[in-house]
Design a protein around this nucleic acid. Structure first.
Lengths: 346, 346
DNA sequence: GTTAGCACTCTGTCGAGGCGAGTGCTAATT
DNA sequence: AATTAGCACTCGCCTCGACAGAGTGCTAAC
């Protein structure tokens, strides 16, 4: 896909993209000569621009407006022209000090991360907490709420707490529940949830013929508790900041954007995709893509602790987003969160 | 405040409010004679309208538009003219069957309630979960995460689960933690959080001089765990539905609305106010009110279980909201949730 | 290969004019 | 005395045409 552009074309494309990022307006040939010193006349610029348009990197909203970069144009810019400088240690410190994680539980950390990323970037922050099934078993507790209704509390190695209400044999006593949880805590310690599920399923098969009543109950209870995938938790911060961007100034666009940000399932799908990859990922929204992220770009990165729980965080902004500013923020934040989560469990 | 209006004025005010609710447009004297059969000419209607305007119940956006009800006009309508019919048992059933609460934990129930109310009303659903401090102690568990870092899990009588990470004496063993939780579970059983806090504070004072090391640790640990008020959980559903309403069609209004719905603290303050009252509460937003709920009305009701945990739910919509439809929804939902939460704990 | 010049195209703004809806006032009617 | 018909007036909104501004593509000259 990376067609080779000669250096002049690259420079001009870069100038156009950057001017457009700054102004959100179509940029014309004269504007380029004014703002950059290429020692070229507007007419020459126009020739190059026509070429770039032929290649699908630029387009013009109408005959007599300037050009704006297409999604492909942005892609090229990001892949080939954008240089992301590393953060200076001072910047790292400032960034780090924006976050306050002391004494926070998982949910609060996720929330805080979204809030700060949104504040720093002035776009919308997105955080998806580690999936339940990517965690490692640490402890399970049962609390009898009423006849046949039991509250299950599950704690992962990383300190993630989940709870769920399940129905169970009405005759179960508190003591039995305690025995059951003791048994399970010993038995399942250190296994990943996938392993736990597999183990439970196979043992349930085996045990069906045996007579250890307690063990049987333990297995079926924990099986019920850990069975369904819990819906992914997702945190959206600073949605209203996006409404300040000129690309979302019309009511229709605002409505569409808010609907997108409100529909968690779409966001989950997006963040899920990036979870398979490593490092910072960039999605550029366009009409062509299956996912309807029209006019928006998404910059994400994963975080994880040593126990393998993986989450994703990122910033969603207009395609015309300040990539060179946001990418380091997302990158560094992901590293930071990984470190913080790692510390949680030692 | 209830100035007495003669019957004709009342009828006309009612007609205006209802026409305005239906159309969102200023209503003129001719429109009234067309849509209602008062056997009066537009000119007579105009006279009455002028009176109602003098009383501050109506206003006109400009000289040659129709009239729209003021906040005060809506207030009068709701207080004196609106008759809320009870739901038929069939309606109750349909409503009830919209909710699916089986096997749901508290958070999911709250979310579901907001979602369904929003869907039924086509406005925005708001739910504030019972405050931590309004719950009754049931059980506390400690899980050692790492040296000096302990995860506390607190369960209320109503099945509400909270967790928090606290720092503690690095030397604490798992066994000691277990002893501590056993002690606390026996000691604090059945007390409200307020009582627990009081008890812990006073005992901490006393114990300071004594030598029961374990008890001392138990007290200080639980004190740290239950000390701070956890931020109120609030659930907002269907914000984008509001954007369909003509009063929020302009970009400025959309932006303001989304900012309002995004700032949880404002919503919490609003819902908090209604928590002191009983039954269905209605706030009508106006510029005059301290709280900036411009153009919106809020219909709320509280729910609770027998153990006293109180939460608030409601619907936020344009002032020009279909009160006769939404009020029964909110009312019935609050009762329903109370019953469901009650059942949780038997 | 580059550029100056020019005709052309398209958008946004501004003011004039007409239309429609609605009002307030006055005088006539019941 | 209350009601109503009639009328002049006021606004907001829409359309239309004119116009300025920005930008392009093409051609011919450098």
């Amino acid at each position: 896909m990376a067609e080779t552009l000669n250096e002049r074309s690259q420079n001009i494309l870069e100038a156009i993209v950057e001017d457009y990022i700054a102004s959100a307006e179509p940029v014309g040939s004269r504007a380029i000569t004014r703002r950059h010193s290429f020692n070229l006349s507007p007419a020459s610029i126009r020739n190059v621009m026509a070429d770039l348009e032929d290649m699908g990197l630029l387009c013009s909203p109408h005959t007599s407006a300037g050009r704006i970069p297409t999604a492909k144009g942005f892609q090229y810019y990001i892949d080939s022209l954008l240089e992301i400088r590393d953060l200076s240690s001072r910047e790292r410190e400032t960034l780090q000090s924006s976050y306050r994680f002391q004494g926070m539980k998982m949910e609060d950390i996720m929330q805080e991360v979204g809030r700060v990323m949104s504040g720093l970037s002035q776009y919308t922050g997105l955080v998806m907490a580690p999936k339940f099934s990517s965690t490692v078993f640490r402890q399970i507790e049962f609390i009898r709420l009423s006849e046949g209704r039991v509250l299950v509390i599950y704690v992962s190695e990383s300190g993630l707490v989940q709870n769920k209400i399940i129905t169970a044999d009405a005759g179960l006593t508190n003591q039995q529940l305690e025995q059951i949880s003791n048994y399970l805590n010993k038995e399942l310690n250190g296994l990943s949830i996938q392993e736990v599920r597999a183990k439970l399923s196979s043992e349930l098969q085996e045990e069906r013929v045996r007579f250890d009543q307690l063990k049987k109950q333990a297995l079926s209870l924990s099986h019920a508790a850990l069975q369904d995938e819990v819906e992914n938790q997702i945190y959206v911060s600073g949605a209203s900041l996006m409404l300040e961007q000129p690309e979302f100034s019309s009511p229709q666009q605002m409505k569409k954007l808010i609907q997108t940000l409100e529909s968690k399932s779409l966001l989950i799908e997006l963040l899920d995709r990036s979870q398979s990859a490593q490092g910072v990922q960039i999605f550029i929204g366009s009409e062509s893509s299956q996912i309807d992220l029209d006019g928006c770009s998404l910059i994400t990165s994963n975080f994880s602790n040593q126990k393998g729980a993986i989450g994703t965080l990122g910033v969603i902004g207009p395609v015309r987003m300040n990539y060179s500013k946001v990418i380091p923020i997302v990158d560094f934040t992901a590293q930071l969160v990984s470190r913080v989560l790692g510390r949680e469990i030692e």
